[in-house]
Simulated assay, not measured.
Amino acid sequence: MSHTLFIADLHLCTEEPAITASFLHFLRREAQHADALYILGDLFEAWIGDDDPNPLHAEVVTALRQLSIPCYFIHGNRDFLVGKRFARAAGMTLLPEEQVLELYGRRVLIMHGDTLCTDDVDYQRYRQKVQQRWLQTVFLALPLFGRQRIARKMRNGSKQANRNKDLSIMDVNPQAVVDAMSRHRVPYLIHGHTHRPAVHPLEINDQPAERLVLGAWHEGGSMIKVGPDKIALIFFPF
């Protein structure tokens, strides 16, 4: 039966080979039967440029290239520097940070989800800074070892900052969700980022709606399957 798949927050890295192996298996066995695959950010734990010779990246490129279905990618907060060179090699289409899809008679808004976490003021300031094109251009012009050093420092700083934050401010702001769905006139929203997989019933402009949140791939994987009959959040073991 026709269906479209969504995944996010795999955080692929060389230190977690089991997650990479599960992703490659997912592409071969599950994704091949879908109409399309959408990756909603943080496919990688970190990304310092398309010129990074990490063998993991080449392995992922090869696997994505072998897909017989369209594959689309929205940047996450960890891999916002994934560029056209990598996307072209992998056969992926890069999408803007917010995209509305028409799927089997439904209007669905998709995004990574970090822009909805407006209560985390420090993160939103950081995001606004690193999204500046001139800063990204300067960073990508640095030697590879320099970018690696900066990325390690930023990751360690982010982990420390998150440990000191109230968990509630790292989740989405309810009004930000309503505003985004109202702006795009959609009854469905799919996103990742928060690592809090769930299906949230909502009411948008006096109409029933749903916010579906993908989980991170830690001990197991998760995906959202959208078909003609239903939308389902599905968990599976590695």
Rank of each mutant, 00 (worst) to 15 (best):
L109A: 07
R163L: 10
G157I: 13
L10P: 04
G221H: 04
L37M: 12
R152P: 13
T20D: 15
V121M: 05
R65L: 07
I19V: 15
I7K: 00
G221R: 08
G113P: 06
F73P: 02
R107P: 00
F44V: 03
H218G: 02
K153D: 12
G146M: 11
S22R: 15
F26D: 08
P174F: 02
L95K: 09
F236V: 01
P143R: 03
F80A: 03
W47R: 05
P96Q: 05
N162R: 13
M181G: 06
P174W: 05
H25C: 04
H112K: 01
Q128M: 08
Q128F: 00
M181K: 13
L103G: 01
L81W: 13
I169T: 14
Q99Y: 09
A34Y: 00
I190L: 15
I7V: 08
Y38L: 12
Q132N: 11
R155N: 06
L24M: 13
I224T: 11
L214W: 10
L5A: 06
G227S: 14
M154V: 15
V186A: 08
A209H: 04
S2C: 10
E15D: 15
L135G: 03
M154I: 14
F26R: 11
Q131S: 15
W134E: 14
V82Q: 00
M170D: 15
I69F: 04
E59L: 09
D79S: 08
N156H: 15
D35K: 02
E97M: 09
L95C: 07
S168D: 09
Q32G: 11
A63K: 02
P237H: 07
T14V: 13
H193V: 00
Y72M: 04
S22T: 06
P53R: 08
P55R: 10
I19E: 02
V172L: 00
T20F: 15
S22V: 03
E15K: 13
F139T: 00
T93M: 05
S68H: 15
F86Y: 10
H193Y: 09
S222Y: 07
W217H: 03
D51A: 08
I110A: 07
V130I: 08
R28F: 04
L12N: 07
A209Y: 07
E97I: 00
Q99F: 07
R125Q: 12
S2Y: 03
I150H: 10
K129R: 12
M92I: 10
Y126E: 06
E15M: 06
R65W: 10
L101P: 10
S168A: 14
G192M: 05
A141E: 04
I190D: 10
P143D: 09
V172R: 01
M1F: 04
